[in-house]
Design a protein around this nucleic acid. Structure first.
Lengths: 337, 337
DNA sequence: CTGTTAGCGCGTTCAA
DNA sequence: TTGAACGCGCTAACAG
């Protein structure tokens, strides 16, 4: 393996000079920089990031923590997008990233996890999809042994950055669009009067915000609102819609999966009411109707989160980042069925 | 950070002794071993795997190469299972793993990739879902710069291990079950006579094997067989079924997603024929009918692949591993709709 | 602006 | 059986 020493010799300079060129340090003549780069090319040299990490005590390594298992099926897509966004971005920024699923951490105390991550040279954690039930992970975060970026959960400290969309506003927007569209479609006074909101899991951080958004939308539109908790489960949402949805004009759901469940219930009851979801997953294409949904763009969220991780490791303070969201109506359903 | 030096001092032994204890070397008294372990506990010492890797030139690091993007939606679940299985197993075995998506490698030549992986300290690659079109990756594999485990694609060399199910037999089994069940259900002579097989992508390594299995099944059952290529695309399978499926008694598909497409086509045509898929994804629950499918258990495949990676790194020769498969009939559909 | 040197934390000879 | 010493490839002062 060709090392920095070989490059130095080949270029006729000192090792440290090569290092400086590699790391874009100032105070290097353009001429020597050229010589060094020449040598690097000729020798086909590739720096050993392991050695660099050891020497600098600065691995730039982030751990992507997520739990794709707890949730029901069909959120795989969300986590896949998270991973794609995070890993792409990490590679782009020259950081290296390891993926850690909560399931791999089962049975570990917070300290065990800390030690495990530390042994892996992890410097920063990025946590996706945290819930209030994840005691250990929350403890881990609050220990502040690592820089941390938390996606979609509130933590405000100097060492912690949070990244999320504005769930309150997003839920407001999609609800207003769904209900409002149907108000316009019908004669005034014959629009939707009653709305069923199938919220997420009470313990989930996003649930409170989204519910708030839904309430505000209901007020602004002057419709009466019932709220039930579907725990992000398709089956539960289906049952709720089955029992409670009959006499409601519109059903708003805090996730696409629940929207699918609700839609299935309505289909079975052989009635049609507008339903809207939240995440914008393509699985929505498998249901039989058009539906509004919030396009969350998990890829972008993850990649932003990783950029924020770098920011933290570069010594900046933690902060709160709010990502934009879009509204989307699924247009391609007739292609599918 | 507490290092091996501290442990040595605390235990009153030399650094090298601690190292030997850590790595289970022979020739260490039970007594000193105890002393060392005691010190490790007390100091809460955790070995630095970065330093270990640098020193030993043996990182034990595997790169998980996969391409979850190229395929149509809804295969996320498959890759999620791959990752879960692989990462769980890697952690269990004390190896560390990085995940690399093909999309991150775009525009790179095989040598670039080699250098990238080498700079990351990668010692072994595990490649999932390779297709014949992935020229660069195949070149990368054949270069044999790394130990390699290939899942579901044939490579037979000393440095390469392949892991897969017996696609020929699996396709045979599920086809026979689907067709055979329907033969039994009907009066003799009125069973299925004609079968449409919607194969995968011609360039995909598994396609040939599965097609062979289908042909054998058709022969054994004495039914006439038409073969079309759906390229693992739901839409294409749907079109094929729409055009060609009307007058066939049974449709066998080389993937669940295509089975869903075919089923949708039949639904639209308002006719019912048995359809079967292949992978055993839960998405199958979103279609309106029962369906046979091969349970591939991607988790196990991935974890086996990682174990094989370790085997290679431990100096063993490459080999071929055939995993078992199961047949599954989706039973839970009535829960969903 | 460039070169010398001392570690980073650990594995691994080789003496003792 | 144990320990001292060297080096892995690189970064980071510091000296020139």
């Amino acid at each position: 393996m060709v090392s920095i020493k070989d490059v130095a010799k080949h270029a006729g300079v000192a090792i440290s000079t090569v290092s400086k060129v590699l790391n874009n340090y100032p105070n290097v003549t353009e001429a020597t920089k050229l010589k060094v780069n020449q040598a690097i090319k000729e020798l086909n040299y590739v720096p050993n990031s392991i050695a660099a990490a050891l020497s600098s005590k600065h691995s730039g390594r982030v751990a992507l923590l997520m739990d794709p298992m707890r949730q029901t099926q069909a959120v795989d897509q969300v986590y896949m997008q998270y991973m794609l966004g995070a890993l792409d971005c990490a590679k782009e920024l020259g950081m290296d990233a390891i993926t850690v699923f909560f399931s791999m951490l089962e049975g570990m105390k917070a300290d065990d996890i800390t030690r495990y991550l530390r042994s892996q040279g992890v410097q920063c954690m990025v946590v996706f999809g945290l819930s209030q039930e994840d005691r250990i992970i929350r403890e881990l975060i609050q220990e502040e042994d690592f820089f941390t970026v938390v996606v979609d959960a509130p933590f405000v400290t100097d060492g912690i950055t949070t990244v999320s969309i504005d769930n309150e506003q997003a839920q407001y927007d999609v609800a207003v669009k769904t209900i409002g569209d149907n108000i316009l479609k019908l004669e005034k006074g014959h629009g939707p009067q009653t709305v069923l909101y199938i919220a997420g899991k009470g313990t989930n951080y996003v649930t409170a915000d989204r519910t708030k958004g839904m309430k505000r939308a209901a007020e602004d539109l002057g419709v009466s609102l019932s709220i039930r908790y579907g725990d992000f489960s398709e089956a539960k949402a289906r049952n709720i819609a089955f029992v409670t949805g009959k006499d409601k004009d519109v059903i708003v759901c805090a996730s696409d999966l629940m929207a699918i469940g609700a839609m299935n219930a309505l289909t079975e009851l052989d009635i049609f009411h507008p339903v809207c979801g939240f995440d914008g997953i393509t699985l929505m294409g498998y249901v039989g109707h058009q539906m509004n949904t919030v396009q969350q763009d998990f890829y972008d969220i993850a990649s932003t989160a990783v950029k924020e991780a770098k920011r933290l490791m570069d010594g900046e303070k933690g902060r709160q980042v709010i990502m934009p969201h879009k509204l989307a109506r699924l247009e391609y359903l007739d292609i599918i069925r």
